[in-house]
Each structure stands twice: as C-alpha cells, then as structure tokens.
Design a protein around this nucleic acid. Structure first.
Lengths: 346, 346
DNA sequence: CCTCCTCGTGGAATCGATTACACGAAGGAT
DNA sequence: ATCCTTCGTGTAATCGATTCCACGAGGAGG
C-alpha cells in the first residue's frame, strides 16, 4: 500500500507538500498541486487514517453504545445517527450492550482505546463503572433515549408524558379501569419514567396502579411473556397491559396467544415504541411513537457541538400516541396513515 | 491521558519494559512487572490503540458492510458477527449500505482507510467499484449471504433450494397452482437464486412461472407493496405471493390490507427470511428461515482464518421451511415451536 | 539599491506505541 | 579462571502522517 513518501517521490516533491495538497492548505503552487494529484491517482494512494489520527489526535469517529441492536427502535436510532454523522463528516462505531452492563463497559473501553472523538450512550441498567468514569473524565458524551441523573452530560430524549396521558384517556374512554404495566428496569430512566407517567395519568382519572399490576421486565421479549403470564394468573387479571417497550409487547402477545386468549377481547395491549410490524400484528397494536430520526440527528448534533467546542444542548422531543385496534377501538378512518407501515425511506 | 512514557517514569523503567509487560513478553523480571502494573493502575493508563495499530500494522478490527440495517435479518447477522468476533479478540465496525452501491463504496473506502484487518461484505446490487478493487487487491475478505461470482473470495451463505422445494410442495398440496414471486434485484445472488430455485421447484410439479408473475422488487417494503398491487390488478391474479425477503413481505401485507382483502383467503403469502414478528402478524407468515447465527459465526471464522494465514473455507448451510397460516393451513400441533417467537438469547 | 514581506518549499520533530539490537550481569560448563 | 549462554534491560529506529521552522526567491515600497 502506497504511503505519502511514495507519492512525494513520484511527484518529485517533499512529503510536506503532499500533505499540504491533501489537506488543501493554501500555500501550494498550482504546479505542485497537479503533480501531487497525478501521483496520488497513479499510485491509488489513500491516506492512512490511523497515522493521521495519531498525529492530529482526532479520529473523526463517534462511538454509539446502544442497549440492544435487536430492538427495532435502537436499530432505527443507529441508522439515523450514522446518517447525520456522515453528513457532518464523522464515522460511527456501534457497540451493542445487549442490556448487560459489563458488555457496555467493554464497548466503552474499546471505543475509548480507539480514541473516538465522542460517545453517544443509551446507558443500560444504572450505567457501568467505565461509562461513569468516562463521563467524569470529561470525554465528550451525550446520552440518548436513556440517561443517568447527576452527571453533567447533555440528554437527547423523547418525553412520553403527554402521549401516555392520551393513551390512558383512550383506554378510560373504552371503559377499561384495571390497567397494568410491564415496566423496564427501574434503574433505567425510561424504565422508571414510563411507570411514573402511567401512574400519574391514572391518578387523573382517580385510578391507582397496584403492585400486582406493576410487572418487572427487562425490555426483552421473554420478560414480557413472563410478566403477562403472572398477570393472567391473578384472581382479577387486568383489562389492559401496557408494555414499556416493543419487545416486551411481543412477549405479551406470545403469552396471550399461548393461553388461547385474544387481544383485545380478552385483554387489551398497548406498547411504548412504535415499529412497522405493529401495523400487521394480530391485532394491530396501539403504540406510543417516538420521533426516532429526529432524536438521532439531535443527539449527533449535540455531540459534535461539544466536540467542536460549541455548547451542546439537551433536547426533549414529544412522543405521540398511535391508536390501532389492540385496545378495542377501530382506528379513525380519517387518519388512514395510522394504519399503514411506516416507510423507512421517506 | 497518560501515555507509555508516563508509566515508564512512574515505574522507574524504560518504555520498552512497560511495553513488554503489557504484551506479556517473557523476559521481564517479576520486580519490574509488579512496578509497571502498579504504575498502570495508579495512572489509569490504557494503551493507545491508534499508535499500536500504526506500529504493528494490525487493528484487530473487522469491517462488516451490510445491505440494510433496518432488515431484521441483517441486524441479527450483525449481532452474531460481533459476538463471534469479540470471542476471537476482534472488534467490528458496521457499515450500512442501504442497498445503495455508492454508499457501500463509501463504507468500504472508509473501512480500508482505517486499515481494518478484514472485510465481511454482503454486496448490494452487483457490487461497487471500490469493493471490487478491494477484493482484487487482496484485502482479506469474505462474502456473507450474497456474493459476486468470479472473485476468489470465500462465501458463507444459506442454501434455500431444499426449503423452497418444501414450500412449493406445501403450496401445491394446498391446491395452489398460480404462484407468483416478488424477486430481489437480479444483480444480487440472493435476488436471482431465489427466483431460480422457485422456478425449478415449480417445474417439478409441471408448473411454470410466467413473466406476469415475476415482480421486480429491491428488498424494500415499498417495492413489495408496489409489486403486489400489480399482481392484484392482473386479470387473473396469482393465488400465492412468495416474497424474496421479509421487508417485501411486509409491503405485500400492506397492499393486500389496503385493498380490503385477506390473507390467506383471498391471496396466500410466504416469505424468505423468518423473523420473530412473523409469528404475530395477521395471519402468522409461513417463511423460510436461515440459520443466521451460524452464518455469522462461520463468516467471522472464515475471515479470521484468512487474516491469520490459515486457508479460509466457504460454507453453505441449509435453510428450512417454517409453516404457519399465511398459505391456508393450520400449523401442525405436533410442532408448537413453529408458533412461538424465536428467542434472541437462547 | 536595499529592506521587508509574502509565498512556496523542504527538513525534521512529533504523536504513542513496538521491537531490533546492544550491553552488562549472572550462571553454567569446561 | 575463562568462555559462552541466558536473562533483563535500555536506546533508538520505526510505522505514516502533520506541522513548526528555516530558507530562498521574488515583488513591493522606500
């Protein structure tokens, strides 16, 4: 593989001049520039990013550590992050923590070892030592979706409060009174906030959320299944199950089907995080949709601001309710879009 | 950030000794070793992977360029690739080509600039110039899922021939005779092979695949929708639509639903690539499942073999048919697993 | 005509690691 | 006692870029 010295030799100039041409530094003669460019062409030279990074102390790379790649929500987030980063001239390296703190730590450490310029994190359960160290050490960092209180790290997330209120209003309007939730890990902000928002919204209707109706999940399908079975085993099962993420909703669907029961007739279901498949499940699932693309873009912008010395901004975007049939009502025919697969390439 | 010189100073030894300790070279005294380790501890030193890579000319990193992250098939592939790579001491950088050759090129180039040790590629439509150059230049490379004929690059993939035959047998047994396919891009191997396998299987039953029943898709949901609409507009629409990937199946489902028709009563549906959601769609979708995890592992092993100087092996694993209800039959009660969400963490 | 700038250029230091080579001390064999 | 290994260590070269500094040429201004 040709290096800068080879190019210099081929062009009959010094490596300094080659470097200047490559970084289009102003003081290079047109003569030299064309000769260098020609040499680059004939040798098929490409600068070594490793060497460049070592010298300049910047990699133009962002790290993104997400909690679970298999969750379509995070997949889409990852995609929009990469898209925006690319537009700003950065690459992205994704680390999948699989909801395991030690794996999150592994990725944070690996990314830091590679001297990425900044880190985007959706922290797992309470964070992990390495991640907290990194935050305190002043690594440029932005939390996305989930965050950890008490750290001076900007947060980009969606606020589901209003949407959850809308959901509860919808459910109450359909006559449901016994509402249950499958929560995420209490140590994650999304885990606890969604429960809090739900409880708050219930209170507005004079309803409470008994412990028996608060199942502890871990954002994975299996836990949704387990918790739903527990609900169904109760002397007085809930009329509605609200899953705090889409995978647990999938598990809930499994559990209901395994008992030979039907949604929404026997039990209603709603989920946090909308995904294209929810349009085609049996029945289509009512869900709370986050503005994922915008979240990803905002997160990248905040991080790049921080990296390039501008003050980064925390951002909170509203989530919205998408009503389908899993809670018992027909979708409004005036809003046919709610019933169609979301496009991935708008 | 502390560097090796700081550690050497703190421990009262030379940088060479520090380096030897870190790479556990045998000839270091226990004395020196403990002093270095202590210094590493107190300074919180972590070796700079960039500098190390520059010197050793290896990054212990694999590049993975996939055609579409939003496709659950590739997401799962990416996950299993990362898992196996991590087990072998490698990191993975994922590039999402979004089925666009120029984006694929962008990622290949970026990855090569970073001097990754090897490349795993699922080439988009016919490959891209940069990718072909890389292959010919001798970059350690392995194709996964899709490949490009005529290149001396090992291929790890699933063979769907048998499963497609099983599918056609199943369909024929249900009385279907007018079978159509939504194909992927003809320039991709998976695009053309699946059509060929389908046509071949039909021939065994004395059936043909007319042009009108061969729709041209691009592996995206939108194309599945469009092609299905074309099928439905025919004077004699097909009785079955076989989508060559899961996203096009989703689009087909959209189109059928938009017409107010029902699967399988009005038209049957089957798909290549099984995903957890197919269990819960309305109706559950009959699909051909690839052994994705094994594919990912085999691909990484082949690539690492190639990188580390062992002869790499091409691998072909069989896909299998998973019968559900979208073609008109009840699932066999003796095989209840076919009706349950696949676990992501077995 | 002399001085001062600006411009284009090259030499060499530098980033943070690894590693070939040299060297001295210690131990074993003769 | 002498020589040869072996062992532990340090010095310095090296990887491939960027960039500070010095230098010579040429033009402008006095």
């Amino acid at each position: 593989m040709a290096c800068i010295k080879d190019v210099a030799a081929e062009a009959g100039v010094s490596v300094a001049t080659v470097s200047r041409v490559l970084n289009d530094h102003p003081s290079v003669s047109t003569e030299a520039r064309t000769r260098v460019l020609a040499a680059v062409e004939t040798l098929g030279y490409r600068p070594n990013a490793v060497a460049r990074s070592l010298r300049t102390d910047q990699t133009r790379t962002l790290g993104l550590v997400i909690s679970d790649v298999l969750n379509p929500y995070f997949t889409e987030l990852a995609r929009s992050v990469e898209e925006e980063a690319r537009a700003l001239g950065y690459s992205v390296i994704i680390g999948n923590a699989d909801e395991r703190p030690e794996l999150q730590d592994h990725h944070v450490r690996t990314l830091l070892d590679r001297r990425i310029d900044g880190l985007l994190v959706s922290p797992t359960d309470g964070g992990s030592p390495g991640m907290l160290d990194a935050a305190r050490a002043g690594t440029p960092m932005v939390f996305v979706d989930r965050w950890i209180p008490g750290l001076d790290v900007p947060v980009v997330r969606a606020d589901g409060r209003t949407a959850v209120r809308d959901l509860v209003a919808h459910l109450h309007g359909l006559g449901h009174r016994r509402l249950a939730i499958i929560a995420g890990p209490a140590a994650t902000t999304t885990g606890s906030e969604r429960v809090a928002a739900f409880r708050e919204a219930l209170a507005a209707y004079g309803l409470t959320l008994p412990d028996a109706y608060t199942g502890q999940g871990d954002f994975q399908a299996e836990s949704g299944r387990r918790v739903t079975e527990e609900f169904l085993d109760l002397a007085e099962p809930p009329e509605v199950v609200f899953a705090a993420d889409n995978l647990m909703a999938l598990g809930a669907l499994d559990a209901v089907r395994a008992r030979g029961l039907r949604v929404p007739d026997d039990i209603a279901l709603a989920a946090f995080d909308d995904i294209p498949w929810f349009v085609h499940t049996d029945p289509p699932v009512t869900a709370i949709a986050q503005p994922v693309r915008e979240l990803g873009r905002a997160a990248v912008r905040a991080l790049v601001d921080r990296i390039e010395g501008r003050p980064p901004q925390s951002v909170t975007l509203p989530a919205r309710l998408v009503v389908r049939r899993s809670c018992g009502e027909r979708p409004d025919p005036n809003h046919p879009h709610m019933n169609v697969t979301q496009r991935s390439n708008p």
